[in-house]
Write a protein that binds this DNA or RNA. Structure first.
Lengths: 185, 185, 185, 185
DNA sequence: TATGAATGAGCTTTCATTCAT
DNA sequence: TATGAATGAAAGCTCATTCAT
C-alpha cells in the first residue's frame, strides 16, 4: 500500500516524533483522513512500518534456514542478506531498531515479540551450527544479537560519512571477525 | 551542573522528542527560563548531554590507550569499560547513539565530529595491536565500529527482556567472539 | 423509518454535537450515504427528530382538547400525558427542548414555529378553562410555559438522582401546585 | 478574570460543543495557550463557567434565606432574584442548566453536587415556610425544582419571541400561580 | 437507490521559547 | 541572573459530507 511506503520514507528520514502525518499523507497522495481509515493512530502506522520491515527481514532469514547451505554458508548468507537489507533500507532499519524503544510501553508487546522472533531465527541458525559441530559452543542468543549489532555498525559508518553505507566494503571484514569468532578452531 | 544531570535523566528515560523542557527544569530545581541562559535551545541542551556522555566514554578510552596493558589487554579493558558504561547508562547510551541521528542536519557537524573522535580512539587501539603484530590486519575502522555494535547488542537484550542488561553474562561471550576475530591465529 | 428511530436514540443519549452520523447509520442498519438520501444534513436529521418528538406531544395535546373532559380534567390529563411522555423519553425531551436553541439561527424558523404551535395548544386548553370560568384570569401564555417548565423539573430530578424520573411520585405534587395556582378560588 | 467572561459569552451564545477555544481566547484578548495555563481543558473551562454561574445564584439564595423576610416574602424575593438573574444572564443560564447533562459522565460529580446544593437552598426556603405553617405540606424537593422549571419557562419565552425575556411581565403571573400553589388556604 | 472509501476543514491541545519583572 | 506567565505555531485526530460504483 502506498501509505506504508510513504510512512517508511517519512519515518526513516525524520524519525517517529519529527514525522508529520500530514506529510505522509501528501507523500502517499491521499488525504490525512484516509490514513486514519487504515491505521488507528500515528503509533499504529508506525507499528505498520515496523511490522513490514521486520517481516521482510524475517522472511529472508527463514528462507536461509530452510536452504541447503552449510552452517557457515548460512551465516555468510544471513550476514549478506542482512547487510544488503540494511544497505537498501538503512534509515528504515534505524527507525525499526532504534526508535521503537521509546514507544515501548505503549505499543505493548507486539514490537518486542516481533524482534524476539526475528532474533530467534538467527539464534536457530547458530544453534544449528553448534549442533553440527561446525561452531564452537558459543552463547547462541548473545551471538545472534552480536550479528545485529554488527549490522548496526554499518549504519554508523553511514552516519559518520553522511552517505549510504557501502556494504561490500565492510562485508568481508565483518564476516571474517564474526566467523573466526564462532567457527571451531 | 544540575541542569545537565536533569537533562540526562529526562532524555534517557523518554528520548529527545518526548522530553519536556519544563520537566527538566523542574527536575533541576530551576525555572524554565534559566535553562535558556545556559543553552540556546532544547537541541543545544541535548547536545550538552551527548557531549557529556561521549566525553565520559572517550575519557575512559584515552586512559586505556595510555595504559601499559598489552593490545589484547587493552581491547579487553575497552570492551569491559564499554559494557560497564552501557550497563550503568544504557538508556542514555540509546539516546546518544540512536536518536541523535535524526537531529543530524540541524546540529551541524558537532555530533558527527564527536562520534568520529570517539570511534577514532578505539580505532587507534586496534591499529596499535595491528602494528605490534598482536592483531591480524583487519580493517581497523570497521572493527572499531563492530565493537560499538556489540555494545549495542547488549542494549537489545535489555529491551527484549525488559530489564537492565546483565553485562557480566555477556561480556565473556562477546569478548571471545571479538578477540578470536581479530587476534592473530 | 428506522433512520429516525436510530437518530432519536443517538441524539437522546449523546446530544446533538456528540452524536455521530456514522453511529446513527450503523444503528439504523444502513450505510452513511443512505442517510443523505433522506436528510440533507445532520442538522436536517436532527430537525426530523425534533419534528417527530414535538409531533407526538402535540398530537396528544390536541386529542385532549377535543375530548369531553372538564377544563380541570383536561389540564390534569395534559400534565399526566406530558409527564408520561417525559418519563418515557426524558433524554429525547432534554435534547428537543434544550439543545435545539443553539441551532436556532441555522434551522431558521421551523423549530420555533413548531414549539410555538405546541405551546399554543396548551395555551388553548387554559384559555378554554378561563372562558368557562373554571380558571382565574391568568396569563395563558405564561401559564402554558409554566407547565412546560414543570415537566422540566422532572428531568432535573432525573439528572440529580442519575436515574429515570419517577413521574408518579411527582405528578400529584406538581398538579396540586399548578391547579391551585390557576383554578378559581 | 477575563477568560471566564469570554467563555461565558461564547458558551452562552453557541453552547459547549459549538464553542471554539480559539474564539474564547480571542474574545478574552489572550493567546490560546494562556487559557490552558488556567484551565486544563475545554471541559474544565466549561466547569469554571458553571461554577461561576451557579455560585452567583447560590449566593443570592443564601442571602435571602438569612434575611428577615417572611416565608412568603422569601419565596417572592427568591423568584424575583431568580428571574432577574435569568433576565440578565439567560443564555448563560441555558448553558448551565441545559447542556451540562451531556457532559455528565465526564465531569463526574461536581456539576451534580453543585446543582443539588443549589436546589437544596431553595428547598430549605420552602421547608422553612412549611415549618412556620405559612405553606402547605408540599413536597419541598419537587416544589423547589418546580421553581427552577418556572424560571426555565421564561427562557422559552425568550426563544420563542427571539428576544431577551421580559421578566417583569411574567413575574406576577408566575408568582401568583406558585404562591397560590403552595401557600396555606 | 444504496454504498462506504475518501476527503479536508476544523478542532483541541502541547510545548519550546520569549521577555517584562 | 533568575523567573514563569504568556505566546502561537504546529500537530494529531475527528467526522459531516461527497461521489464513483
Amino acid at each position: 500500500m502506498q501509505i506504508i511506503e510513504a510512512a517508511v520514507a517519512e519515518f526513516a528520514s525524520k524519525g517517529y516524533f519529527a514525522s508529520d502525518v500530514a506529510a505522509i499523507a501528501k507523500k502517499a497522495g491521499v488525504a490525512k483522513g484516509t490514513i486514519y481509515n487504515y491505521f488507528s493512530s500515528k503509533e499504529d502506522l508506525f507499528m505498520g512500518v515496523v511490522r513490514t520491515g521486520l517481516g521482510l527481514l524475517e522472511e529472508r532469514m527463514r528462507a536461509i534456514r530452510s536452504s541447503r547451505l552449510s552452517p557457515v554458508g548460512k551465516i555468510e548468507r544471513a550476514l549478506k542478506e542482512y547487510l544488503s537489507f540494511v544497505e537498501r533500507n538503512w534509515t528504515l532499519y534505524q527507525v525499526i531498531t532504534k526508535e521503537a524503544i521509546h514507544l515501548f510501553a505503549r505499543v505493548s508487546e507486539e514490537y518486542c515479540t516481533k524482534v524476539k522472533s526475528h532474533v530467534g531465527v538467527i539464534e536457530t541458525l547458530i544453534n544449528d551450527g553448534i549442533n553440527s559441530k561446525a561452531f564452537r559452543k558459543v552463547d547462541a542468543r548473545t551471538s545472534a544479537l552480536v550479528l545485529l549489532g554488527m549490522a548496526d555498525a554499518v549504519t554508523w559508518e553511514a552516519v559518520l560519512s553522511n552517505r549510504k553505507p557501502n556494504v561490500l566494503k565492510q562485508h568481508k571484514a565483518i564476516l571474517e571477525i564474526y566467523l573466526r569468532g564462532i567457527v571451531k578452531q
